[in-house]
């Protein structure tokens, strides 16, 4: 109960602060296991994506989060585990870790994921090179739709190292899903994903 109320508070607050508007350009909100992958410039990114999803989808969409950051305090741990229901993975993969396996479970259970394939927050324009993780995931589960999500302005409103939010109007554009073609090489798939995301960037 409290978790649901807290989640609503976060969603409403982020929508008011950013005036967030979602544009579903290449697809519609659908209740199926999907991987939403987005450009990453702000620590608020996943909350914003989460906030613009219809509530029914939000309940079954889980952000991928860095274990070292989110497990560092008991309130953080509570937030990520109970409120955001994040899937925690270890950023510094050690022997025996299987980050892709951890993501695979929720997808099998019909849940969706939010990932940031750049791996870190980008402090400049455009997007950084992608990490290969989404390809591993696609190979393991080829029917998964990878949905590009462009977040505009949140990186300026709340950049890395920022605490106060500049009240800019943010938009979230959801593009056409990408799926792995049979036998498609890793570099090609990652390129296609990256281009599908870049295609959503507003013209400068």
């Amino acid at each position: 109960m409290l978790e649901k109320a807290l989640a609503s508070v976060f969603c409403i607050a982020s929508r008011i602060l950013t005036g967030a508007r979602a544009t579903w350009r290449g697809t519609q909100p659908e209740a199926r296991a999907r991987v939403y992958y987005a450009n990453h410039r702000s620590h608020g990114d996943f909350i914003l994506i989460w906030a613009i999803l219809p509530p029914a989808l939000r309940a079954v969409t889980r952000p991928i989060a860095a274990a070292d950051y989110w497990l560092a305090g008991s309130f953080r741990r509570y937030l990520i585990e109970r409120v955001f229901r994040g899937v925690l993975i270890n950023r510094h993969v050690e022997h025996g870790d299987d980050p892709i396996g951890a993501m695979h479970g929720p997808l099998e259970a019909g849940e969706s994921l939010i990932v940031f394939p750049e791996g870190t927050r980008n402090q400049g324009d455009g997007i950084l090179p992608f990490k290969p993780g989404i390809h591993h995931l696609a190979k393991k589960r080829p029917e998964t739709e990878f949905v590009p999500v462009w977040i505009e302005n949140l990186g300026r409103a709340l950049p890395k190292g920022g605490i106060l939010v500049v009240p800019l109007l943010c938009t979230v554009t959801i593009g056409e899903p990408v799926t792995l073609e049979p036998g498609e090489p890793r570099a090609d798939f990652i390129d296609r994903c990256r281009n599908a995301l870049l295609a959503l960037e507003p013209a400068e």
């Binding site: 400049g124 500049v166 009240p167 109007l169």
Partner: peptide, 13 residues
């Protein structure tokens, strides 16, 4: 808010 939202600024701003 509307003006700055469509104006180019960078991290340094």
């Amino acid at each position: 808010r509307e003006y700055i939202s469509v104006t180019y600024t960078r991290r340094g701003d």
